[in-house]
Design a binder for these strands. Structure first.
Length: 586
RNA sequence: GCGCUUGUAGCUCAGCCGGAUAGAGCAUCGGCCUUCUAAGCCGAGGGUCGCAGGUUCGAGUCCUGCCAGGCGCGCCA
């Protein structure tokens, strides 16, 4: 990267000034350099003289002059000047601008990838929705965001392990199993009241129907036994939580060993649906990590044992507490309830302990933003377990609010009426859905306009980038139809003829790509890549309208074809990282 | 009430480690298809960067207060 090359030149100059005593040697400022916004300011600009001026006790412009005097020569740099209050502007040689075309051609799909993360292992957990129902649109954003962050890190050389934590243990799953069983009994012909706290979705009936279809009446129990002696449910003035818990116990006692089979029927059906759904959405994992298997391995007891030995657990009111306030949490948290059951948090402690033992350099959790209050206790748990909490990065994803034009699409999980991710994909398509989910910063609220995402018009930003790719492919088809062929070598030999301002803009954008991938990856911000691709596409469309490519001057023609082929390659590489297709025709 | 977070053009949003004249898309208005795909391009209008202080060579960016929105404050998951 030319940027790093310039930084090294500056570092050299700073070191020289420090050696001669013109700069204090204890200053640790790294030379900052950025792309000039205005072409009049050259290609790159550094404000280092401005930030160093005070420490050097020297006016900024004068300091800038001294730094320039100490800069080593570089064939790619044709001019360096002081401008404004003390900026150092770098002007690059024409060869430095066009070299990227050659590089892109040589590296092809690998262009933009780097090795900065080489040797580092990253675990990233995302989505991890409870397998109690199909994924809805709220899960979609985290799914795309997590998968793109993973791709970006991988492109930077990190060894990435994608993981879905399957909450296949715990009370919610018991509620699911019981809901399936009650619907199953209805299939058997028994009319029973359905718990107000049960899962009412239509998919439960489907699972129950399948179960009845394959197992007949095997799991049927007399209705009187099912209902006898239960507390009253909420509509009858009772407590819905107590009622559902009693119903769960009833299911377990009446079904005995069969309970597990009903439970697994619900679990495997829903989990398979989720896997298929994500797969079709371009979201894949190295591992589906089972909470139940973790619990069965005794990991919870082990992890709590570690905390106990560290003196971080105590008993109060019959429950076991973790002293998370010692690590900055607002209050201590229960890990084992009075009734002896472990909490979700205890299970999560065990899971994170397991992650720690696997030796990752970074542990990334993608969570819905409503879980932000949960972060301190998990970080506390990691510290309590003797781990390094700075290795845990919790990336919060805000919910997307759905609109259809100006109309807000109401979402209600309670009633079981929500738009599923599958419905969204069906309505707007995979590419548009993915694009919309990552086009904005994920830690901020976003409005997702279904009408806009569905439109196949110029209103839809998805097609803008893809269209640039298709247009370039079309140019090469036209080249064929004219009976011409691109002379790659000749084009590379005449890159210097790319002197139009539009060509300069395209070249500049192309050379930024590796910087963007690196920045987007290290800051976990896929939207940077989206913004970049829109800019590159814009540069190309402008160029396309201003300059013809298929011209008689074959030297210039080949140079231009090489340039737009480089654009095509970079757009394809970028779309690939986003999990989007790069159509050759639209 | 406490904690976290957001406030940038009519709307949706970018804005890099604090840098030079705050940007894009949509919407509005006006142009460009006998020539490589008009899902495109060119141009115009549109801003007290929520408000008030502070930090400094320099603040949309950092700090404090206030106003407004969102989220979180279970022996739920």
């Amino acid at each position: 990267m030319i940027k790093n090359r310039l930084i090294r030149l500056l570092e050299h100059a700073i070191a020289a000034l420090q050696a001669s005593g013109d700069l204090p040697s204890d200053s640790t400022l790294r030379p900052g350099i950025e792309r000039a916004r205005d072409a009049q300011h050259g290609d790159f600009a550094s404000s280092i003289a401005l930030s160093f001026a005070k420490a050097a006790k020297c006016p900024p412009r004068q300091l800038a002059e001294r730094i320039i005097q100490q800069l080593p020569g570089d064939p790619l740099v044709v001019k360096v000047e002081v401008a404004g209050p003390g900026f150092i502007n770098f002007f690059l040689a024409p060869d430095a601008h066009t070299a990227v075309v050659r590089t892109i051609h040589e590296e092809g799909p690998l262009f933009g990838r780097s090795r900065i993360g080489a040797g580092q292992k990253v675990q990233i957990e995302f989505v991890s929705a409870n397998p109690t129902g199909p994924l809805h649109v709220g899960h979609g954003r985290g799914a795309v965001y997590g998968s793109v962050v993973a791709s970006l890190l991988q492109a930077c050389g990190f060894e990435v392990h994608r993981e879905y934590y399957v909450n296949d243990a715990g009370r919610q799953m018991d509620i699911l199993a019981t809901s399936v069983w009650l619907r199953y009994l209805e299939e058997c012909g028994d009319v029973l009241p359905f718990p107000s706290n049960g899962y009412r979705g239509e998919y439960i009936r489907t699972i129950a129907w399948d179960l009845h279809h394959t197992a007949g009446d095997r799991y049927r129990r007399p209705a009187t036994d099912v209902l006898q002696g239960l507390p009253s449910d909420e509509p009858d003035g009772g407590d819905k939580e107590l009622y559902i818990d009693a119903m769960i116990d009833r299911a377990k006692s009446l079904l005995g060993n069969d309970y597990r089979l009903v439970f697994d029927a619900g679990l495997t059906s829903i989990l398979q649906d989720i896997r298929d759904d994500l797969d079709e959405f371009g979201v894949t994992y190295e591992e589906w990590f089972s909470e139940r298997r973790l619990a069965d391995s005794g990991a919870v007891e082990d992890a709590l044992g570690v905390l106990r030995e560290a003196g971080l657990l105590y008993q109060q009111h019959g429950a076991t507490w973790f002293a998370s306030t010692r690590f900055g949490d607002e209050k201590d948290r229960v890990v084992v309830r009075e009734n002896g059951q472990i909490t979700y948090f205890a299970s999560d402690i065990a899971y994170h302990w397991h992650k720690l033992q696997r030796g990752y350099d970074q542990i990334i959790n993608v969570w819905g933003a409503d879980h932000h209050g949960y972060v301190p206790r998990v970080k506390g748990a990691i510290q309590g377990l003797g781990g390094d909490a700075s290795r845990l990065h919790v990336l919060l994803v805000q919910f997307a609010v759905l609109y259809r034009g100006d109309e807000k699409v109401q979402m209600s999980t309670r009633s079981g009426e929500f738009i599923t991710l599958r419905q969204l994909r069906g309505e707007v398509g995979r590419d548009a859905a993915r694009f919309f989910y990552v086009m904005r910063r994920s830690d901020q609220h976003m409005d997702f306009d279904l009408k806009l995402a569905t439109s196949k018009s110029n209103e839809n930003p998805v097609y803008y980038v893809q269209y640039a790719h298709a247009r370039i492919c079309s140019v090469f088809r036209q080249l064929d139809e004219k009976g011409w062929a691109r002379n790659l070598r000749q084009g590379m030999d005449h890159l210097k003829r790319l002197g139009e301002s539009h060509e300069a803009a395209v070249l500049s954008s192309l050379s930024r790509y590796p910087e963007v991938v690196e920045s987007a990856a290290l800051s976990y911000e896929p939207h940077q890549l989206v913004q970049y691709l829109r800019q590159l596409a814009s540069d190309f469309h402008t160029y396309y309208n201003a300059c013809p490519f298929l011209i008689d001057d074959h030297e210039l023609r080949d140079a231009r074809l090489n340039l737009i082929d480089a654009v095509r390659q970079v757009i394809a590489n970028g779309l690939d990282l986003l999990g989007l297709s790069a159509p050759e025709a639209m």
